[in-house]
């Protein structure tokens, strides 16, 4: 009886695969999460430091938020004295026991179309999605546009 219900739970997906093998998101801790707020509803950038305590890589593949209609993983291309632009990044691997930094002039979350006008001091939850479909919700602190060193 007991076994049967367990099997049934698996079958209808009540117990996610992540419950058997620890999910990537479970090993990742986020710190220094902040958003550089720009006026009106201009696109903003989100930054965060991700530490992977796991013994295998965790791969960030996307992110989403109830506040922003569009959240994309981007990387800026900065050549000293040259052109700068940015491009979308499909995935960002955080190696086993390694660290990944989303920081100004590098990787960032491109945040577009907020559902409200935010102000410094607000908190915005953004959920990071990993390759194994595990998720890590992170609270981002909204900071003023001219923040130079947030930490």
């Amino acid at each position: 009886m007991k076994w049967q219900s367990l099997l049934a739970s698996f079958a209808i997906g009540l117990i996610p695969a992540g419950a058997v093998h620890a999910a990537q998101a479970d090993h990742v801790t986020a710190s220094h999460a902040w958003i550089r707020l720009l006026p009106a509803k201009l696109p903003a950038a989100g930054y965060v430091t991700l530490q992977n305590a796991g013994s295998s890589a965790a791969t960030l593949v996307s992110a989403h938020s109830a506040v922003y209609a569009s959240v994309m993983l981007h990387e800026s291309d900065v050549e000293s004295g040259g052109m700068n632009g940015m491009h979308a990044v499909n995935q960002l691997a955080i190696s086993a026991t390694g660290k990944a930094m989303l920081a100004p002039a590098g990787y960032h979350l491109m945040l577009e179309q907020p559902d409200r006008v935010l102000k410094p001091g607000d908190k915005v939850e953004i959920t990071l999605d990993f390759a194994d479909r595990s998720h890590l919700p992170v609270q981002f602190a909204v900071r003023p546009a001219n923040t130079a060193d947030p930490n």
Binding site: R36, L38, L42, P43, A44, A45, H74, S76, V78, N84, M86, P104, A105, H108, M110, L111, A145, N146, T147, A148
Partner: peptide
């Protein structure tokens, strides 16, 4: 340009 969320604001903040 204002729709540049990363490098332009970083430069102006600096």
């Amino acid at each position: 340009y204002t729709h540049c969320p990363d490098v332009c604001p970083l430069t102006l903040a600096q």
